[in-house]
């Protein structure tokens, strides 16, 4: 009986493994063809490459301005994520401790503003930041807008978590002579770590992968992010497919490394970021 169920489980395991491998086929096809010439790819897209030639990667790196794009993406993502972490956690905590009317009102409006799709802000943002303020082609503009768009749900998550931190901890610190600011950074901030990881992962992945919002502000080669660089490379570069596929692999690689290092946190972050209560 035990033996039989073990056998059954092995079969089930193998079955799902096959499903997973089928599921991954697009990635395999992509990767194997980056080591072929375009002629080889169009002739036999599913055959394994005969050797590892990196010519396509070299072409893609120079045509995409890969390292510039990587640097730009990193600057935007890191600055937006860190800034959002500090200000949203402060507000989330503040709203959990001070139930003033104004705080409750702002919190309600924050929740309501989570519903709107980005399309609603798209045209006005271009008009205000690109037109009136003339801030296009600056990385900081994209980081700023990204922070703003991520504020509602970040504050919401920090607030929910801070509600669960006993107020006695704050009081103990206050008796020791700490003001609210010092209490927050010395006592509360470290306790927020689990939710912080969640929010940071969600924000960072969203900003890193964003195409639409970023494309509205960054148009010069010098300021392009990875998503934009991959897009321009693939739309402007016709008929020579193998370097394009190498470009896609390069676009995936940084985030894939990040994923393999912290998949548990990343999956949790992405899921709880969108399920939000």
């Amino acid at each position: 009986m035990v033996e039989r169920s073990k056998k059954k489980q092995t079969t089930a395991f193998l079955l799902i493994l096959i499903v997973l491998l089928l599921f991954m086929v697009p990635f395999f096809v992509l990767v194997i063809n980056t080591f072929k010439t375009t002629a080889e790819f169009t002739k036999s897209p599913f055959s394994l490459p005969r050797s590892f030639r990196f010519d396509n990667y070299i072409t893609a790196i120079s045509k995409m301005n890969f390292f510039v794009a990587l640097k730009n993406t990193a600057i935007i993502t890191i600055s937006a994520t860190l800034f959002n972490t500090v200000i949203s956690s402060m507000t989330g905590y503040f709203f959990a401790r001070k139930k003033w009317k104004i705080n409750k009102l702002i919190f309600m409006l924050l929740l309501a503003s989570m519903v709107a799709p980005f399309q609603v802000y798209m045209i006005p943002l271009v008009k205000i930041y690109g037109g009136m303020l003339n801030l296009s082609n600056q990385l900081i503009t994209v980081a700023y807008v990204a922070v703003g768009l991520n504020i509602p749900f970040s504050v919401f998550l920090y607030n929910g978590f801070a509600e669960g931190i006993p107020e006695e901890l704050d009081e103990a610190a206050r008796i020791d002579g700490c003001g609210m600011l010092r209490t927050f950074f010395r006592i509360v901030f470290p306790l927020l770590k689990p939710i912080m990881i969640t929010v940071m992962v969600f924000v960072a992945l969203g900003v890193w992968n964003d195409y639409l919002m970023t494309s509205l502000f960054l148009t010069t080669t010098k300021t392009k992010t990875l998503a934009l660089a991959a897009f321009t490379f693939l739309t402007n570069h016709t008929a020579d497919y193998s370097p394009m596929m190498a470009g896609l692999v390069l676009g995936i690689l940084p985030v894939l490394i990040f994923y393999l290092l912290g998949q548990k946190y990343i999956i949790e972050g992405v899921i709880s970021g969108s399920v939000k209560g």
């Binding site: 507000t91 943002l125 703003g148 509602p152």
Partner: peptide, 13 residues
Amino acid sequence: FAGPVVFIWFSVV
């Protein structure tokens, strides 16, 4: 505590 959040949220959203 809430100033930066309110400012940015107002200006972006």
